[in-house]
């Protein structure tokens, strides 16, 4: 029996699901091997139980928690799909700013003042803390990155088909960066999150002339103190270091020592 596969999303741009749909060359082969039962980006069929649920997005509200727990109870394998689900992603920056302040930045002071006294809008202010999936339920596998990497998605699907645990080496982005023969970002006088960030992305940002911003989350053995020292040596102000860490990792404890 082909495994039943479903995709769900919470707070996210759904870009990770699109990244998977973009693997046109292998997608049809994969669809021969699995039974895709729920995929909002592509079809709409419902099933009571799934073998693999890919869940995109971060968790913000109480109703998100209930929906995720319900999903968890209906799937054998739950995969966190992408940076929002794995580590909160950019929206976790709002954990450090009061919702009313955010609202003002986007819609202006007048609009903020107006909705603040309107009971219909009070649910807005309950949006308190952005969390990755594993802050709420058990996650069986992580497909990291913003967006996810098709090769890792494929590895995961094959592993599940073979009944084995997928393995993503806990190596820094530097490993792939060196394999690609890149000039180190530091050599260009810039700073990089690569040394403390989960690899697996084939160092795609550095390959293309940018730096690593750490979208894939910090490694279990990440030497954060050393990274702070490195940033300070490059004359990065502590406030900017904090901002750098919070870009993708606002929901992680990283940077609390800065």
């Amino acid at each position: 029996m082909k495994p039943k596969v479903a995709f769900f999303d919470f707070a996210s741009c759904e870009g990770c699901q699109l990244a998977i749909l973009n693997c046109e060359d292998i997608l049809l082969d994969i669809l021969n091997l699995v039974n895709l039962v729920e995929f909002r980006e592509a079809l709409s069929e419902k099933a009571p139980r799934y073998d693999i649920a890919f869940v995109e997005g971060s968790i913000h509200r109480d109703e998100d928690i209930e929906r995720l727990q319900n999903l968890r109870s209906r799937t054998t394998v739950l995969v966190a799909l992408g940076a929002c689900a794995c580590n909160g992603n950019v929206q976790a920056r709002s954990n450090f700013v009061a919702p009313a302040v955010n609202y003002e930045v986007i819609y202006g002071e007048e609009a903020r003042n107006r909705v603040q006294v309107d009971a219909d809008h009070w649910s807005l202010w309950s949006h308190t803390r952005v969390r990755p999936l594993d802050a709420v339920v058990k996650v069986d596998a992580y497909l990291r990155g913003c967006p996810v990497v098709p090769a890792e998605f494929l590895h995961l699907v094959k592993s599940v088909l073979h009944g084995t645990t997928p393995f993503f080496p806990p190596d820094a982005v530097c490993v792939e960066c060196k394999k690609n023969g890149n000039e180190c970002v530091l050599e260009r006088g810039e700073t990089c999150m690569g040394p403390i960030t989960w690899g697996g992305c084939n160092s795609i940002c550095v390959n293309n002339g940018y730096v690593c911003d750490g979208c894939r989350g910090t490694l279990p053995h990440a030497n954060i103190d050393s990274h702070i020292t490195l940033m300070r040596e490059h004359n990065i102000k502590d406030e900017d270091i904090r901002n750098r860490y919070r870009l993708f990792l606002g929901a992680e404890p990283i940077g609390r020592g800065v």
């Binding site: 530097c174 490993v175 060196k178 403390i196 030497n223 490195l230």
Partner: peptide, 13 residues
């Protein structure tokens, strides 16, 4: 090793 990231760059190059 106090500052080592265990990133393996030294091995790889």
């Amino acid at each position: 090793v106090e500052r080592c990231f265990s990133c393996g760059s030294c091995n790889l190059v």
